[in-house]
Simulated assay, not measured.
Amino acid sequence: MGKQYAILRVQKCKGAAIGAMQYHNDREPGKHTNPDIDQTRTRLNREMRSHVDYEREVQARIDDGYSGERKVRKDAVKLVEGIVTASPEFFELADDDKVREFFDDAYRFCCDEFGESNMVHFTVHMDEETPHAHFGFVPLRDGKLSWKEFFPNKMALGKMQDRFYGHVGALYGLSRGEKRGDGEPVKRH
């Protein structure tokens, strides 16, 4: 069996995409386009950060913590959406308690890394082939709403993944993905 990796990725989320994220993450009734969802296992999903409405909660956090003098731009990054998972082999070999502990540790990492008050949601999906968690946080730091406050450059993303590996992945015997050299294309594992 090859290496098993700890995985954490983030992406910018603006405007209307915020509601679409909630539709997928909460498994709201309707026609989901993802054929990998096994609705007989949806009851196993776990909501670790309770929420009602992403858009309202994002706006409430901005209203509470933003101290800039300018109005927040319509195209501002208001939510950073992320995913936490591991190689499928990890979950095949892990018992239910170990899987629960992995996501508990990942949630604690995200709260520490991005600010617990900034966290909008953290949802563990057990109803797809590989268990994973979707999380979202408002990129608010020192009164500034900015992706760049958290990720000023690509190296900052890599350092965040190093910290995730150190605080979570290493605890479970997982590997850190191969780092990309400056100017190299993204590596796929």
Rank of each mutant, 00 (worst) to 15 (best):
G68N: 05
R56T: 09
L44T: 04
Y66F: 12
V58I: 12
I62M: 06
D75N: 15
V52M: 06
D64E: 14
Q59R: 12
E55N: 11
E69A: 05
D64I: 00
E55P: 06
R46N: 12
R43Y: 13
S50C: 10
D53E: 03
R70Y: 00
D75Q: 08
H51A: 08
D63I: 01
Q59C: 07
Q59V: 01
A60G: 03
V58L: 10
D75Y: 05
I62W: 00
K74Q: 14
D63C: 06
Y54K: 09
S50G: 12
E55L: 08
E57F: 07
R61M: 03
T42W: 00
V72L: 08
R73Q: 13
R73M: 04
Q59E: 15
H51E: 06
K71R: 15
R41P: 04
V72R: 08
V58W: 09
D75W: 05
K74T: 14
R43I: 13
Q59M: 08
R43G: 08
R56H: 06
L44N: 12
D53C: 14
R73G: 13
Y54L: 11
R73C: 02
A60K: 04
G68F: 06
V52A: 14
T42R: 09
G65R: 12
S50K: 15
D64T: 14
D75I: 04
G68D: 03
A60E: 08
T42Q: 11
K74W: 05
R56Q: 13
V52H: 13
R73S: 12
R56Y: 02
Y54R: 04
E69C: 01
E69I: 02
D63F: 03
M48L: 15
E47M: 14
D64P: 00
D53N: 15
A60Y: 00
R41Y: 07
H51I: 08
Q59F: 00
L44Q: 13
T42E: 06
R49Q: 14
M48H: 11
E57M: 02
A60T: 05
D53L: 06
R56K: 11
G68W: 08
D75G: 05
I62Q: 03
A60R: 12
E57C: 00
R73N: 03
Y54M: 10
Y54D: 04
K74G: 13
S50E: 12
Q59N: 14
Y66C: 01
G68V: 02
R70C: 01
G68P: 05
T42C: 06
R73D: 11
E47L: 14
R56A: 13
V58M: 07
V72K: 02
R73T: 04
R70W: 01
S50H: 15
V58H: 07
R61N: 07
V58D: 04
D63G: 05
V52D: 12
T42M: 04
R46I: 10
D64W: 07
S50Y: 10
I62P: 00
D63A: 14
E57T: 00
D63Y: 01
S67E: 12
D53T: 08
K71A: 10
N45P: 10
V72S: 03
E57H: 02
K71F: 05
V52G: 12
V72N: 03
R46E: 15
R73P: 01
D63K: 10
T42A: 13
Y54I: 03
R61C: 09
E47A: 11
K71P: 00
L44M: 13
R56P: 00
D53A: 08
K71H: 10
H51C: 12
D63V: 02
R41Q: 13
